[in-house]
Amino acid sequence: MSDTIGAVMLAVGILFNLAGCLGMVRLPDVYNRLQAATKCVTLGTCLVLGAVAVLTAGQSAAIALRGALCIVFIVITSPTAAHALARGAHASGVKLWEGSVADAYAADGEPGAAREETE
């Protein structure tokens, strides 16, 4: 039973990884790529780690515990890294794709960027 659940989680996780990487190749600008890649690869990796924990739960508690810790780290760090990269990309002058409809951040003159430098 747990074998089946683990195998399904593994397959779904790897399919999400593939979808995320495909999004990074296909989508038109860096912000859209960041969206697709961050969301899909985060959940995909968490599912793969969860599948490893489920598949080995009978033999060793160590793998399950470390897998859970790894999931916690990835869920905390990956959106933070995406946020830092998006802000860095905007500050380094990368324009949004020409099909974009709004850029309130540029319209407001990038508030917050100056605050960081004065600290």
Partner: peptide
Amino acid sequence: NFDVAYRVLHPAMPIRPGIVK
């Protein structure tokens, strides 16, 4: 994830991006 996977795999890529506050 299903939303993003749909947008990525759809041949026409139905996206309408922008930054809002």
